[in-house]
Amino acid sequence: MAVGLFFASGVDKIAHYADNVQLMATNNVPAFFLPLVILLEVGGGIAIALGFLTRFTSVFMAVFSVVAGFLFYQGYSHAHLMVWLKNISCAAGFLLLCLNGSGKWSIDHLIQRRFARA
């Protein structure tokens, strides 16, 4: 679920690139980070969905979730609290995925099995 959420968010950032640059400027975040964020959300979402470099990517997604929560949802409002809690929940899920790995139906598992035979 979190993977789909981040993938869709990355695609939306591509579609509304200028709006996101402006939002980042409002929060004192340099605009050069936006392509990296898009790469992480779209590329990381696809990688985790396929089970490719799952543990590695999950760490970055967890850190990104927490950092984005602190950078973009400052101040108290109910909406900010809900989005911040969503980010923290996603970070926890990514950390669990990092600890447990991607499972038997993943590219990581296929690669691991292939090298175990060699």
Rank of each mutant, 00 (worst) to 15 (best):
S106D: 08
V11G: 00
M24L: 14
A25I: 01
C90Q: 10
A2G: 00
L71T: 08
S9W: 00
H109E: 15
S77C: 11
I14A: 02
F52I: 09
T26L: 12
N20G: 01
V37I: 14
T54F: 08
N100G: 06
V29S: 11
N87G: 02
V63M: 11
K13E: 00
S106G: 11
L40Q: 13
F115Y: 10
A91G: 05
V66D: 06
L53P: 01
A18I: 04
A92P: 08
W84K: 12
H109W: 15
G10A: 02
H16Q: 05
I88N: 04
H80L: 11
V29Y: 09
H16D: 01
Y73Q: 09
I88D: 01
F52Y: 15
P35T: 06
K86W: 03
A47T: 04
V29I: 10
E41H: 08
A2P: 14
G43H: 09
G4S: 11
G93M: 11
M82Y: 09
L110K: 15
I38M: 12
R114Y: 15
V3Y: 03
K13H: 03
G4D: 02
C90S: 14
T54M: 06
F6K: 06
V67H: 05
H80R: 02
F115A: 00
Y73M: 05
F94N: 00
F94M: 14
L81D: 11
T57I: 13
G43Q: 06
L53S: 11
Q22E: 12
A79M: 14
G75W: 09
S58V: 05
K13I: 00
L81S: 12
A49T: 08
L110M: 13
F7Y: 04
G43C: 12
T57Q: 03
A79L: 10
M24I: 03
H16P: 00
I88F: 09
L97V: 13
N28K: 14
A8P: 00
G45F: 07
V83S: 03
D108S: 12
T54C: 04
P30G: 08
V11F: 00
V3G: 02
Q22M: 06
A15K: 09
R55M: 03
K86F: 07
